[in-house]
């Protein structure tokens, strides 16, 4: 009990997922649950043990979601939702990708979105040949006040310049446009 009382509990229990693209298997079979945690200490133990995002092979993802929410559009908590999306050119992978992904994780774990933290579902980093992506997923794309509040805090926390614009897309729009980027519903 004394040891437990010294650990720093998080507001939510989180689940880290790993996706490795293997075209011979169904999409869901390529998704693996890595670990669950609900303390700051357990997060760092896990983070220190796994590869940095920039060291993953092309086609791999990490996803961190609240327990009970699957990292896919089809989940009930995601299907009306959307994502704030960062697209990172390959030449910035080794400078910026790991920093931006860690900042994203710290936003989630620190519960930094105030009264809208309940809207946040999780985040995903996709490692791809041309451009990597980091996305913060929220549960209700029509909740403009919540989505905009989260986007403004997120952009500030990432340290992006005021000239940089990031967009939010509804998952329903992304799903309908699998070969090109969906239109931005909101920008900050």
């Amino acid at each position: 009990p004394e040891v437990l009382s010294k650990l720093h509990l998080l507001q939510y229990r989180w689940v880290l997922w790993f996706f490795k693209n293997d075209r011979s298997r169904a999409w869901q079979d390529n998704l693996q649950l890595v670990a669950k945690f609900n303390t700051v200490e357990d997060f760092w133990a896990l983070y220190s043990h796994i590869k940095l995002a920039s060291k993953l092979s092309s086609g791999c993802d990490y996803a961190l979601f609240k327990e009970g929410i699957q990292p896919m559009w089809e989940d009930n908590r995601n299907k009306q939702g959307g994502r704030w999306l960062l697209s990172i050119a390959k030449q910035h992978r080794h400078i910026e990708l790991d920093r931006l992904w860690l900042e994203t994780l710290l936003c989630l774990l620190g519960d930094c979105f105030e009264e809208y933290s309940g809207e946040v579902c999780g985040a995903v980093v996709n490692i791809r040949t041309k451009r990597d992506k980091i996305a913060l997923w929220t549960s209700e794309a029509e909740n403009k006040a919540g989505v905009m509040f989260i986007g403004q805090i997120y952009k500030e926390r990432l340290g992006l310049s005021t000239k940089t614009v990031i967009g939010y897309q509804a998952h329903t729009d992304t799903a309908a446009k699998s070969n090109s980027l969906a239109k931005n519903k909101f920008v900050v």
């Binding site: 040891v3 720093h8 710290l106 620190g110």
Partner: peptide
Amino acid sequence: GKKQYDREFLLDIQFMPACI
């Protein structure tokens, strides 16, 4: 109460010795 932690606090804990 709510467990909100700012980034500096979270980062500090990364390097704290384990409480064992």
